[in-house]
Simulated scan of single mutants.
Amino acid sequence: MEDLLLNSENLLNRVSLTFRRYLYFQINWNNRLIGIKGSRGTGKTTMLLQWLKEVDIPTRQKAYFSLDDIFFAGNSLVETAKLFYQQGGKILVLDEVHKYPTWAQEIKNLYDRFHDLQVVFTGSSIIDISKQEGDLSRRALMYELKGLSYREFLDFQYGIKFPKLSLEEILTSEGIVRKKFPQEFKPLANFQEYLRFGYYPYQAEDRLGYFQRLRQQTRLIVEYDMAELKGFDIRHAKKMMQLLFVVAQQVPFKPNINSLAEKTGIHRNSINNYLYFLQEARLLTLLYPAGSSVAVLQKPEKIFLENTNLLFALSKETPSTGTVREIFFSNQVGSMHNTSYPKSGDFLVDGKFTFEIGGKNKDMSQLSNVENAWVVKDEIEYPVGKSLPLWLFGFLY
């Protein structure tokens, strides 16, 4: 265990506190058992190391263990944590818990046995603790970390800091929105960069190899992480990749089940299940008709890639501007609010706000008889009446 503690100390010494994710300020860090899930590359590990570094207790009383470390291939998590606790440990951060087969039961055991040991764990976005053994759902306070918002990207990449905006603030008054930003701020100056490269924090490390790394990450999610999903047969991973790439060339679109089955070799009765699995892995977003119940076997009205960076990485050709706009809106708004497909317009948010997405010349003609409706336009800087700028929805978190 000494090597684990030494590695933990080294990581804490190296982690930067310059930029912190939105979720850092939303978590109730006083809870005794906290779980944070999220897709690969969104920054879960960095966020936890930052928090652990700032906790004002001696270094040997706090530790970070990654459960994909080879140490845990031959050593019990419970016994290792017990030894840490007996040596005065108070806070234990466990990363990549889904890589350890009996993680749920053993974390539950730690919670029940050591009442003054705080445990914080992270896992893939696909983990569902309500279906895990040990009934962690009653014990753990769960959160999910999304990729960078446009607001966070401006801070992370350029040090441009702004507070987040609520949906109500965006919709209420154009004057209120304008007052939130200095006159010299050019909101569109870095927007196209964000759409291509801004969602995952690791883009700062290697911009030239970003798309290749993103494709590799996608394959790892499908071939390894999704093995944790109940009902998913890992032997179908190749077909899942085929389905994902087929969708990437066409999104957003109304899915034709027979056509998807023919192009991927997946039986038509299994397509909706596969789409659902890809959504659980945060690779796709499925938009269902307004007023309908979301069920695994239900056909979605539209399919989107989860974020615009994935779209640029997986598309064979430059994606259409309209597709990019809709995916950005779906991703940023859907991270904080419920979205569905309305009878008129492109998105219904929280069951009461309707939005049509388009370019700067888009008008309200398609929404003329719809209450609480707005046109969201690309290439405009600030709200004008019922016209809202697309970039502004990147400030919701």
Rank of each mutant, 00 (worst) to 15 (best):
Q212A: 03
H115Q: 15
D155H: 13
I234Y: 00
S166I: 08
S173C: 12
F232G: 08
K238I: 02
P201H: 08
L188Y: 10
A189M: 10
I126R: 00
M226Q: 05
S173P: 09
K108Y: 09
D225H: 04
T122E: 09
R207P: 06
F156K: 06
E169Y: 12
R207M: 11
D112P: 08
Q212F: 09
F232V: 01
E193F: 05
H236S: 13
V177Y: 10
G209E: 04
G147V: 09
F121Q: 06
Q132Y: 03
R139Y: 06
I107G: 02
L154N: 05
I107F: 06
K108V: 01
L154D: 06
I160W: 07
L145Q: 14
I126T: 14
L195D: 05
S149N: 03
R215C: 09
T172A: 15
S149A: 13
G123I: 05
H115E: 14
S124D: 10
D128Y: 00
R151Y: 06
A189H: 08
Y210T: 09
R178T: 02
L148R: 02
L220K: 14
Q212L: 11
L220C: 00
L154C: 10
Q212K: 14
I221F: 07
F121G: 04
R235W: 01
L145F: 03
I176H: 10
E144C: 00
R138K: 13
T122Y: 00
I221Y: 04
P182Y: 13
D116P: 01
M226L: 13
L145S: 07
D225P: 03
L208Q: 15
T102Y: 12
S149V: 05
G198F: 02
F162L: 11
D233L: 01
Y210N: 12
E184H: 12
E169D: 14
L214E: 05
F156C: 02
N109H: 13
Y150K: 08
D225E: 13
F153M: 07
Q212T: 13
P187K: 01
A104R: 07
F191S: 05
Q192A: 15
Q105Y: 11
M241Q: 11
R219S: 15
H236D: 10
L214S: 06
P182D: 11
F114M: 09
F191L: 14
R207C: 00
D135N: 14
F191V: 03
N109R: 09
L167V: 05
S149W: 10
G159H: 12
A204T: 11
A140V: 14
T102I: 08
W103M: 08
S125L: 06
E106M: 03
I127W: 01
F181K: 08
Y199N: 06
K238Y: 10
P187A: 11
E152M: 09
S137W: 12
P201K: 09
R215P: 04
E169R: 12
D135R: 13
K239E: 01
L167P: 09
L171M: 12
R178M: 15
M240L: 15
S130F: 11
S130R: 14
V222H: 09
K161P: 01
P182S: 12
M226I: 06
K164Y: 14
F191E: 07
A140N: 08
G175H: 13
L243W: 09
L141S: 11
L110N: 06
